[in-house]
């Protein structure tokens, strides 16, 4: 009686487990074999790509059908599936580009991009320092800080709040990147002009979100603070700012991406001879696409890592929020 569910679970578990295991092994071995031993170019490589793709897809489908009991396994699976999907995509890209002899100007294979990346880490680092560590960080800090402080000021006056909010919402939808040429004209070619673009781009999302967040606490909670005879400052720090945290972090996350975009696009309008945007537009002029892709890889890494960092801080800072508490 007590053995039956166990045996069932074992049978249910082990059978797809071994199937997935053997399929994964086969796929990896096949990919390695095709990668090493098939000749450059030709339809054989494309056929290999197709075979690889079908088996990898089958693997993904099998994996996504799994419903493991333990929390850790489920979390691992939720990372493993997209990673597998991404790797499949990269392999497919590699095989198809090499198989069909796509000129590397058009689309270099990932291996060439990786090689360029490894060969020019010094250059990429210098660009990263110029664009991210100087322009983006300075602009992001000043823009978000100014937006936050302005929101605190605006919050004192309902009249200003009603006047500024619609305008702030409107400005958030405008193509603000367009101020880049003006800022380059005002602040010169070096990073301060890029930081200025970033400040303008990050200011309004922060302003609008913080003002909305400061209104997030309910009337009941505010009444409670009144019965405690709390001052404006106390209500702000003990109730309304904590309640506004999810909104503020939302703005911080939106701004992380916006800031990087602003700095890179601003560099299209003129820079000293260093910076991610400069490198992209210069190397594309020389048709050196592998370098452009390497630079885009850096941008993607920086963008998702800074987003992830802010999300991590958010989990720590707003541990009380239902959306985080549950997990």
């Amino acid at each position: 009686m007590s053995e039956a569910p166990l045996a069932q679970a074992l049978a249910g578990k082990s059978s797809p487990g071994t199937r997935i295991g053997s399929l994964a092994l086969l796929t990896v071995l096949f990919a390695l074999w095709a990668f090493v031993s098939l000749p450059e170019g030709g339809w054989l490589l494309v056929l290999a790509a197709l075979a690889f793709w079908t088996s990898a897809l089958r693997l993904t489908v099998l994996l996504s059908a799994l419903e493991p009991q333990s929390k850790a396994a489920r979390r691992g699976l939720s990372v493993a599936i997209p990673v597998l999907f991404g790797l499949t995509f990269l392999f497919l890209w590699e095989f198809v580009v090499r198989g069909l002899d796509v000129p590397s100007v058009l689309l270099p294979p990932p291996s060439a991009i990786a090689a360029t990346f490894a060969a020019s880490t010094g250059l990429l680092w210098a660009d990263f320092v110029q664009t991210f560590l100087k322009a983006v960080l300075a602009g992001y800090a000043i823009g978000c800080g100014a937006g936050f402080l302005t929101a605190l000021l605006v919050d004192r006056s309902p009249f200003l709040k009603r006047g500024l909010l619609p305008i702030g919402n409107l400005v958030s939808a405008l193509p603000i990147v367009g101020v880049a040429p003006i800022m380059v004209m005002w602040f010169g070619f070096d990073w301060p002009s890029k930081a200025a673009v970033v400040i303008i781009m990050t200011f309004f999302p922060m302003l609008v979100n913080t003002v909305a967040g400061l209104n997030a606490s309910s009337a009941m909670e505010r009444d409670l603070m009144r019965t405690y005879a709390a001052s404006h400052g106390q209500t702000l720090t003990k109730l309304r700012l904590p309640a506004a945290m999810p909104f503020i972090f939302n703005a911080l996350k939106i701004n992380a991406t916006l800031a990087l975009i602003g700095a890179i696009v601003a560099e299209f309008f003129g820079t000293p001879i260093v910076g991610m945007g400069f490198r992209i537009s210069a190397e594309i002029g020389r048709m050196n696409t592998a370098m452009v892709w390497a630079e885009i890889t850096v941008a993607a890494l920086v963008g998702s890592l800074s987003y992830g960092l802010i999300a991590l801080i958010e989990r720590r800072a707003t541990f009380w929020h239902p959306s985080i508490r549950r997990g």
């Binding site: 100007v105 058009l106 689309l107 990147v177 996350k253 992380a256 991406t257 990087l260 975009i261 890179i264 696009v265 299209f268 991610m276 945007g277 992209i280 537009s281 594309i284 002029g285 048709m287 696409t289 452009v292 892709w293 630079e295 885009i296 941008a299 993607a300 963008g303 998702s304 800074s306 987003y307 992830g308």
Partner: peptide, 16 residues
């Protein structure tokens, strides 16, 4: 992909 500055890819798409 929402967290990636996709706009950086724009010049390459145009030129390629």
């Amino acid at each position: 992909s929402q967290t990636i500055p996709i706009l950086a890819i724009a010049p390459m798409i145009i030129v390629v």
